[in-house]
């Protein structure tokens, strides 16, 4: 396997939540590729479907949410007939979400660093118990060996006195240590795809910088792919190699991080970037904001979801159909009628 073929390919993924009040189309046709050794950033406001997309990849979307269309293809290497390694493509949407195959992928091949480190550990089980459980689930080791691996993991993520921490509870740890412990648990089975769902929202700035550095280092050491979800454009600029911008369950634009930040194509991306304060701004200058507010998920606007707030909206076109995602430039893709 090399780094030129995607390790994870998502094609036209749709996740809908049928509720009494109507159907929420949380993810409504999302397509992207993730490569090994790459940090793939997903940005968007809260409610744009980025977390649901990731839950769909792990097949842990909570009911009544359902994957109604699309494919999630994971490339994994299996031992071939002659002892060589072979690539095997597996479509996760076709698997039974709670079946054995999916469970052997979850946590082992694709791991999750959840949003809130505080609430993501059970408060009545020790950190060690929860990490060792993950290790023993996917590796053929006994309790003692698993504990050794867990200890090494805690050391790797830079937790001091790991031996003692293993027998402590999450609420006895500081926010930064807790976040590191969560990362250690996610990494404990050497996943090839690591999903980090806003891993730094709950920690202070110093810790945030440490955690980001840690993730970077681990990723380089292990040649894993990281899918990094955040609404913080600064963090994305610092972390990601490739960026996908989402709005109301749809991909607005995706491309290499430099292109997205220096030559944004979609009006939404442009508006987002304008709303970041910069050092060159004159004091007391009003920060540009995006007019209007995010529509309620039950009555998404027809056509391009962004058109009611878009300055460049084309009447009779943008409010009629959803623009397809089209390639412009070498690696950049945009979904907007302005580039037809």
């Amino acid at each position: 396997m090399n780094n030129s073929t995607p390790i994870l390919s998502v094609r036209d993924l749709k996740v809908h939540f049928p509720l009494d009040e109507g159907t929420v189309k949380a993810v409504d046709g999302v397509t992207f590729d993730v490569y090994a050794g790459q940090v793939f950033g997903i940005v968007g406001e809260s409610g744009c479907g980025k977390s649901v997309t990731m839950k769909a990849v792990l097949r842990i979307v909570e009911p009544p949410g359902k994957i109604v269309a699309g494919e999630i293809i994971l490339r994994r290497s299996v031992a071939g007939a002659n002892g060589s390694q072979m690539d095997d493509l597996i479509n996760l949407t076709a698997l039974d979400a709670s079946g054995r195959v999916m469970r052997s992928i979850r946590g082992a091949e694709i791991a999750l660093i959840p949003q809130e480190p505080m609430a993501s550990f059970s408060p009545v089980h020790t950190i060690g118990d929860q990490i060792i459980e993950a290790i023993m689930l996917h590796q053929a080791v006994n309790q003692r060996e698993a504990r050794k691996i867990a200890l090494q993991m805690l050391k790797d993520v830079g937790i001091p006195i790991p031996d003692q921490r293993l027998d402590e509870y999450s609420w006895q740890l500081s926010g930064g240590l807790r976040q590191r412990a969560i990362i250690a648990m996610a990494l404990s089975c050497n996943p090839r795809v690591l999903i980090a769902d806003e891993p730094t929202t709950a920690v202070d700035v110093t810790t945030q910088a440490q955690v980001l550095r840690l993730l970077r280092r681990l990723q380089q050491d292990r040649n894993a792919a990281i899918i990094f979800i955040t609404h913080d454009l600064g963090v994305i600029a610092q972390m990601a190699d490739y960026v996908m911008v989402m709005y109301l369950g749809l991909v607005m634009e995706q491309g290499p991080v430099d292109e997205i930040f220096h030559a944004p194509k979609h009006p939404y991306t442009q508006a987002l970037l304008r709303s970041i304060p910069t050092i060159t701004m004159t004091p007391r200058e009003n920060l540009p904001t995006i007019t209007g507010s995010i529509p309620h998920p039950f009555n998404k606007p027809r056509g391009c979801p962004f058109h009611p707030r878009c300055e460049k909206s084309i009447a009779g076109k943008c409010d009629q159909a959803v623009p397809p995602l089209r390639r412009i430039g070498a690696n950049q893709m945009v979904s907007c009628f302005l580039y037809e």
Partner: peptide, 10 residues
């Protein structure tokens, strides 16, 4: 969230 974590473990 800890239920999601546990589920994500497999």
């Amino acid at each position: 969230p800890y239920v999601v974590t546990a589920r994500a473990k497999g």
